[in-house]
Design a binder for these strands. Structure first.
Ligand SMILES: [Zn+2]
Ligand SMILES: [Zn+2]
Ligand SMILES: [Zn+2]
Ligand SMILES: [Zn+2]
Ligand SMILES: [Zn+2]
Ligand SMILES: [Zn+2]
Length: 401
DNA sequence: GAGTTTGAAACT
DNA sequence: CAGTTTCAAACTC
């Protein structure tokens, strides 16, 4: 039967479980259509919060202790914001060991009641959920013709979009302590997911706090309508078929909002662009960026870092990953930022060097012939450079060793 | 593991 | 919109 969620201090509401199907993943794959595909993990549609069902499936799986060893929806090395709904197959997962499949069903939330309304928006197969009063978790039922479809959903319905990732990496747990996992600070929440196996304290990012969570989602969406879109551009194809020979590889995998880094030179994971392994663009407002397209294409490295190049050749690190792998179109190489000379030429270093040179110039100006002055400055520069190089190799040794 | 640094998100 | 605070993760030791 249909269930009602009785919210504390809230007007209760009868949820009629209007179950509709889902177009199964089609819309998520057609990335070409800008309008059809949004990439939203959570979004407002007609005033309702809509989210893929994957999270619920995950959540239910967790609560029901069903095949706890299997997890879905999270590519192993996908970075925050990179999680590609709609990109190759993250949505419908097929774990080698199991035959479970999850579809991108969606549920709608009724904003007035702050309640989740398990209304699947579209349907092309038979999998339905309805709230389960026993533990407040939705369980699947089938009001439609084929009730059995529930237990064996999607067999053969989901084309394995792309080769499955080798190992289903378990999602990294959050460690939130003060946000209740209800702000975008929490990565789980920001990904539109429930907290599962996290280390958070006082977590409200779960069905036990559904109403609160819904409010939080709405609040986040009000602050930023794109809050639950992937931050990294989802391979949105530029202008239909590509113009040049680049063809399909010419995707827009870029940070949509851009970073605002000030002190990391966009060479550390503090930088969302660098973390996502995409170059900074003009959308970024970073200062002293060393993550530009040209920067990361520069093969200039290794010159300064013999120790590292040694390491690279001896370990043969490249051999382990001969695959270019599906989603890593752009991320062929793993350019160790430490192998770039300018990794060590931070603003502080440059400033210090400049000060040294200026001091040297001031000390000797008008005291020695300009020729000697020039020479002394160059000498000072050499001294600075030595220090920088020494410092750099020191830090590398610590890494290598 | 403790302490620091960092920049997004939140807030004013 | 800009400046500040808050926050959790990245990083360092
Ligand atoms: Zn959290
Ligand atoms: Zn979490
Ligand atoms: Zn949590
Ligand atoms: Zn950056
Ligand atoms: Zn950037
Ligand atoms: Zn940058």
């Amino acid at each position: 039967m249909d269930e009602n969620y009785q919210m504390v201090g809230q007007e209760e509401e009868v949820l009629e479980e209007e179950i509709v199907g889902e177009e199964q993943y089609e819309e998520y794959v057609e990335i070409g259509d800008d309008e059809a595909y949004t990439g939203d993990r959570l979004a407002l549609e007609d005033g309702r919060i809509v989210t893929p069902a994957r999270q619920y499936a995950q959540y239910m799986q967790q609560m029901q202790r069903v095949q706890p060893q299997t997890r879905y929806g999270q590519a192993p090395r996908l970075q925050q914001g990179q999680r590609p709904m709609g990109s190759q197959g993250v949505y419908s997962y097929e774990s080698p060991g199991t035959q479970r499949q999850l579809s991108p069903q969606r549920y709608a939330y009724m904003p007035e009641s702050e309640e989740m309304k398990p209304q699947v928006l579209r349907q092309s197969n038979q999998m339905f959920y309805t709230p389960n009063t026993s533990f407040g978790v939705r369980k699947a039922i089938t009001p439609g013709p084929s009730r059995e479809a529930l237990t064996t959903p999607y067999m053969g319905m989901v084309k394995p979009p792309k080769p499955i990732k080798k190992s289903i990496g378990k999602r990294k747990p959050c460690n939130c302590t003060k946000s209740l996992c209800l702000k975008l600070y929490c990565e789980c929440f920001a990904n539109g997911e429930f907290c599962m196996d996290c280390n958070c304290k006082d977590c409200h990012n779960n069905l036990e706090h559904e109403a609160e969570r819904s409010r939080a989602i709405k609040a986040s969406l009000e602050r930023n309508p794109h809050a639950f879109k992937p931050k990294i551009g989802m391979s949105k194809q530029k202008n239909g078929v590509s113009t040049k020979g680049k063809s399909t590889a010419d995707f827009e995998r870029l940070h949509q909002k851009g970073c605002h880094c000030k002190k990391s030179n966009c060479l550390k994971n503090y930088c969302e662009c660098y973390e996502a392994k995409v170059p900074c663009t003009d959308r970024c407002k970073c200062t002293s960026c060393r993550n530009t397209e040209t920067d990361r294409n520069t093969k200039f490295r290794d010159k300064f870092t013999p120790s590292l190049s040694q390491l690279a050749t001896t370990t043969g690190d490249r051999a382990s990953s001969p695959f270019s792998d599906e989603e890593s179109e752009a991320g062929q190489e793993a350019p160790d930022p430490k192998s770039f000379p300018w990794y060590y030429l931070t603003d502080d270093v440059i400033e210090a060097t400049t000060m040294c040179l200026v001091a040297q110039a001031q000390e000797f100006e008008n005291k020695v012939p300009s020729e000697d002055l020039e020479k002394s400055i160059l000498k000072e520069f050499s001294r600075c450079l030595e220090q920088i190089i020494e410092s750099a190799s020191m830090s590398q040794n610590s890494v290598v060793a």
